[in-house]
Nucleic acid binder design. Structure first.
Length: 291
DNA sequence: AATCGACTCAACCGCCGGCAG
DNA sequence: GCTGCCGGCGGTTGAGTCGAT
């Protein structure tokens, strides 16, 4: 099924009688075969990666260097992680994308084993799909805020569910978590955060105060779980809090998701939306009021 | 069983910056 | 400074898959 193309050498000398094999070279395109994969793996295992054009020739692959590089980095490299993105990884992608935009390779550096291609595909197929369904531009502020206030809490909750399966459900989960301070924050600001459930000034909301935190691949998950707010549950609702960074201090914002909403929404399954339309429009209304 | 549309993701393309000659 | 090559990046495509009808 894979196709190939014939490329003419740039040296198009009609008087040259040397064999056409020297003038024409076949360059394969399309899906890689097992044999090609083996060639590439074997060559890299003995010679290392890099110098991709030379590598392609020396390995006997009728592929461009670019193609070899892509195949190796996105598929064959031993530490590539397979399978669905975990809630933690999704959360990290949302967070990092809010900071860096479509800098996929940069984002991928913070997700060990995940490739920029995979993250890019995730964004296009999952995140942008949500925006399309909501008829909102995925780059719009509205959508970004919707992600922060609807999607992220759900991922957080999923993470909590996964990590605390052995913990009693009703346990209060770090209502006011330790918030690592950045260099330019006064210790007292940590205590200034008020538990203001009515503060919906999302314009000031940051991604759970992560903006000033250094994140590296080894501790980014911890940073997220430590700083991304809090989740606790009373009889009726899940309360999802987040810290709001204002010029001088942090305040604390909390929104509630009713248990039935959580139960009803299949927000973490691949087949469903991550939030339902009602929630989005409620959120949108709330936002409009506060603008 | 056949068809169709939606979705996924591997692979390609074009552009850009760095670097050597 | 100019040119060509190469590697890296982000955007896009399209074959394959899956579920609904």
């Amino acid at each position: 099924m894979s196709k190939s193309i014939l490329l003419m050498s740039n040296n198009n000398n009609n008087n040259n009688n040397s064999s056409n094999e020297d003038e024409l070279f076949e360059l394969r395109r399309g899906p890689w075969t097992l044999e090609e994969d083996n060639l590439l793996i074997h060559y890299i295992s003995t010679h290392g990666e890099g110098r991709w054009n030379a590598l392609a020739k020396c390995a006997g692959l009728k592929r461009t260097g670019k193609s070899c590089r892509l195949r190796w980095l996105n598929y064959l490299k031993p530490d590539i992680k397979r399978g669905n993105l975990t809630p933690q990884e999704q959360l990290l992608i949302l967070e990092l994308h809010s900071k860096w935009g479509n800098r996929w390779s940069k984002i991928a550096q913070h997700l060990p084993g995940r490739t920029d291609n995979e993250i890019k595909n995730y964004w296009r197929t999952r995140v942008q799909k949500q925006a399309r369904q909501l008829k909102v531009d995925s780059n719009s502020k509205k959508f970004v805020e919707a992600i922060k206030n609807l999607w992220v809490p759900r991922l957080l909750e999923k993470m909590e569910q996964c990590s605390s399966s052995s913990i009693e459900k009703k346990q209060n989960l770090s209502v006011l978590p330790n918030l690592p301070l950045t260099n330019n924050q006064e210790p007292s600001t940590k205590q200034n955060k008020s538990h203001d459930t009515n503060n919906n000034n999302v314009n000031n909301t940051t991604w759970a105060s992560l903006e000033n935190l250094r994140i590296n691949s080894s501790d980014s998950m911890n940073v997220l779980t430590e700083n991304f707010n809090s989740i606790h549950q009373d009889d009726e609702c899940y309360h999802v809090g987040s810290f709001i960074q204002q010029p001088e201090h942090f305040t604390y914002q909390e929104m509630s998701i009713s248990e039935c909403e959580v139960a009803e929404a299949n927000w973490f399954t691949d087949e469903g939306s991550l939030w339902n339309m009602d929630e989005f429009w409620q959120f949108k209304k709330l936002e409009d009021v506060n603008i």
